[in-house]
Computed example of a mutant assay.
Amino acid sequence: MLYCLRSSRATTSENIHPNQLPLQDITSRSGSQSSPTLTNEYTSALQTSSYSEIRIFLDIETDQSTHDQLLAQYLRPNGEYVEEILILQHEEPGYDSFITGLLWSFFDHSENKARMCLDLSQAIRRARSLITPLQDLLLVLPLDSDSDSLSSPQRTRAFDLLLKYEQLENPFPDPGSRNVRGMRHCFADLNEQLQIQINKSNSRIRFLHRAAMSFAVCLILTTVGVVVAGVVVASHALVALGVATLIPVCVPSKIEKKEQYRLAQLDAAQRGTYVLHEDIITIERLVNHLYSDIEVNKRFIKSGLWRGKDMHSILEVSRQIKRSNVSFQKQLTDLDEHLCLSFAAINRARSHLIQAINVRRDDSL
């Protein structure tokens, strides 16, 4: 197993904690359509109740201690429900521990990605608290005029806020850290593992098709030979022949049905993994740009204020920060909106996989 796949999980009935949220509620709230990208469903996502709910809860100021409580409420299906479903699958005949392990990994990775969305929402809030006081001051300073004069209180206030900006820690993760990049690699590795299993499953289904066809052809040829030879003419022999015709066809058909069920799970997990992997690439790009912009501004402030409260230096630095802040605010908004769409995509992907797993309860094999 890959380092970021689920290494172990207790799968005994004692670990089951029933979830009161029914599947119908999960699927109705999370949507019923999938898409390889988030771009094409941007407009429809904004109109759903799930987006509104996610928008509200991402705006809540939280810390790590409250993340579990929020995820239990807004992650659909939540961890308890997923655990119950997969433990029930573990107890079914024909249980495949490796494939179920891949499904566990998908749910784990998607939950970790939801936690990342919460963390980045808090980072956006910290970034806005960092820039807002300075932005408010820059709006009233005479930076767009030809005058190079500031009042003493303005100069002092600008210097203090610029210095505070330069000294505060960057709220976004370093591009070299494993926060986002490591998660992207985990989704990529899981996608590869799922694709391998999908290919194997498709190969088994094709083999079962060929086996069923071979059985049927052989049986037809044998029957024709027997009839032509005039060996079997009694009615009881014909009945036995009819039963014999069904045996080789029904057995591969039942095995194939189980394989199709397994393939549906793998396919749902792989499609969800692909969507979330592509989405995290966008998040990584947005986060890296924001981190870099803050670092560039901090270096510019540090180099520009080395002479202390020099008026010309403060004016030059303030003008630069004001110009760059327009793009910075736009990027914050883009990331903020994308995190809402990302959380909605997580819920859809999880719900689609749960639907694929629950098919077996409605169609007993």
Rank of each mutant, 00 (worst) to 15 (best):
H236Q: 14
P248R: 13
N297R: 05
R307K: 15
R271G: 07
T245I: 09
R307I: 02
H277K: 14
E278A: 09
T245C: 02
P252Y: 05
L305Q: 01
I280C: 03
I301G: 07
L290T: 07
V231K: 11
R271W: 06
S253T: 11
L263T: 14
V296W: 01
I281V: 13
K302F: 12
R271A: 08
L266G: 08
E256Y: 00
I247N: 02
D279A: 15
R299D: 06
L286S: 05
V296Y: 08
N288A: 15
A244G: 13
D279H: 07
E278Q: 13
E259M: 07
K258W: 12
F300H: 10
L286K: 08
L246I: 07
A240S: 12
Y291C: 13
L266R: 05
I281C: 02
V275P: 03
R285Y: 08
W306T: 13
I255M: 05
K302R: 14
T282A: 04
V243I: 13
E259N: 09
R299N: 12
V275T: 13
E259D: 04
C250F: 05
V249Q: 08
V249W: 00
R307T: 07
S253Y: 05
K257N: 09
K254N: 04
D279S: 15
L266W: 05
T273I: 02
Q265T: 08
D267E: 14
L290I: 15
R285L: 10
R271V: 06
I281P: 01
V296D: 00
H236E: 08
G304I: 15
V233M: 00
Y274V: 04
R285E: 11
R262A: 03
R271C: 10
A237K: 09
V233P: 02
I281D: 04
I281W: 01
V243Q: 12
L286R: 10
L238N: 03
T282N: 12
A268F: 07
V249M: 15
P252L: 06
E259Y: 11
Q260K: 09
I255Y: 10
V233H: 09
K298Y: 01
L241I: 11
A240T: 08
K257I: 01
L241E: 01
A268E: 06
K257A: 14
E278M: 13
K254R: 04
D267L: 11
A237L: 02
F300R: 09
Q270P: 04
L290R: 05
T273E: 05
K254I: 13
K258M: 07
A244N: 02
K298N: 01
D293A: 08
S235R: 05
R285H: 13
A264C: 03
T273G: 14
E284W: 11
V243D: 04
I283Q: 01
R262S: 07
L241D: 01
